[in-house]
Design a binder for these strands. Structure first.
Lengths: 245, 245
DNA sequence: GAGTGGTCTAGACCACATC
DNA sequence: ATGTGGTCTAGACCACTCG
């Protein structure tokens, strides 16, 4: 007879369990974006482990950009409302190297039935209603981005064009403050495409001009997809940057 | 009078200094890619610090993908010659989701004077000689990538077309085994461009067809740039993927 | 000065790979 | 059985922030 057995519940270190518990608190909005979480010592007593174990759990969450450590002050829940996080997911920059500052111009915001494509990516049931937002972003007066955005209406109920136009900052800060939805990470698929007449008129380029197609799915806590963006960039004077490690 | 002074040599923790020393050993090829470095205990006695301090230094180097930890075996210098690292920097994948496997076809390899563009990015003196390599990569029989590569000839002396054609694996494994040059990280700038007649004939697309332009600078230890790639991808059936955290 | 995160140590013990 | 990395602890002390 063989003694070999598949590990049923493979070894899980203490700090991983602590990490899960902190994650659960974040997901349950026990601590909100921008707020401080309890001190390491406090968490250590709460979970009945040593400070070092809590430290290791927090270290990993900080490495994943869910928490932010600030020496002497505390550990804070990451937020898109801080200045340096405003453009955390924006990879477009001018060829000149200067910092880009995009100006928003919302075109429409309407409720529709989710297409197959959108339903699949947002993990919605066929035909559930979603909000579709169209916008153009300009830089130095020139249109650079045309974007279609889809959001599950259940989570973003009541969102409308006026609210978007009033909001001064980036959208992820808007989601956070108005809909208690913090974006944790995103995945993008990039292609080169040719402008059709509609894109051409929005971005002021000729039909057939090459554009960068950027398809993004953004996730909140628990790997839950809650936003899709289908963007087209005019990359005549700017480019998409990426660092490979 | 004010007591305020700018910190001249701001506080540097011990583990950072250990990290620098390990880094120096890597750069000096004291341990080669794929080899094990000394055990934590051994390094602790060598540097006269505790094991925990060495651990923290190694942890950071592992997070930066310079070292790879393997429980029970040791800590190893990262290498592009391992199976799972072969395509560490390749972000192209078929729309179908299957794993891509590109086939190389080297067109030329010649020594030229560095252009301004290349000299600037490789930090070479004006007019120093570089190798230019042209290649096409095919997937499922179709040409997908056309790429121009520039290398400083001083570091890659003797590299020629025949050697490239004989080599079976990826180029970064080739650099490592033949020219003692390990790539640590890379930066890419991406645009959408229109195919000209030359690109069109290489990639079997019409003139004016949209292509993805990917400009890469790759770095070895010490942030030294040692390779430039100017690639154009046909993204009809594949896309560039990126994860944002 | 008090509170927070950051560093460093020493030691015990666990999980994994290898002989 | 031995050696390696991985976890966990307890305690001391340092660096930073703020009132």
């Amino acid at each position: 007879m063989s003694n070999i057995a598949l590990p049923v519940a493979s070894f899980s270190p203490l700090y991983q369990q602590i990490k899960s518990m902190i994650l659960a608190s974040l997901q349950a909005s026990e601590w909100l974006p921008g707020e401080a979480i309890p001190s390491e010592i406090e968490l250590a007593t709460r979970y009945a482990v040593s400070q070092g174990t809590v430290r290791k759990a927090i270290d990993e969450l900080a490495a994943e950009n869910l928490l932010v450590r600030r020496q002497g002050k505390g550990t804070f829940v990451a937020t898109h409302q801080e200045d340096d996080w405003q453009y955390r997911f924006l990879r477009l920059e001018p060829d000149s190297g200067e910092k880009i500052h995009l100006k928003n111009q919302f075109l429409s915001c309407k409720s529709i039935d989710a297409s197959d494509f959108v339903a699949r990516l947002l993990k919605l049931k066929q035909g559930e209603s979603v909000l579709q937002i169209d916008r153009i972003q300009t830089f130095a007066g020139k249109p650079v981005v045309f974007e279609e955005i889809w959001l599950p209406e259940s989570r973003f109920a009541g969102l409308n064009l006026e609210a978007l136009n009033i909001w001064p900052g980036p959208m992820y800060a808007f989601y956070e403050s108005q809909y208690a939805t913090h974006m944790v990470r995103a995945e993008e698929k990039i292609k080169a495409i040719a402008a059709d007449s509609i894109l051409g008129s929005h971005l002021h380029v000729a039909q057939g001009a090459p554009l960068l197609s950027v398809e993004r799915v953004a996730f909140t806590y628990g790997n839950k997809p809650v936003e899709i963006r289908y963007a087209r960039y005019d990359t005549i004077d700017q480019h998409y940057v990426n660092k490979l490690n």
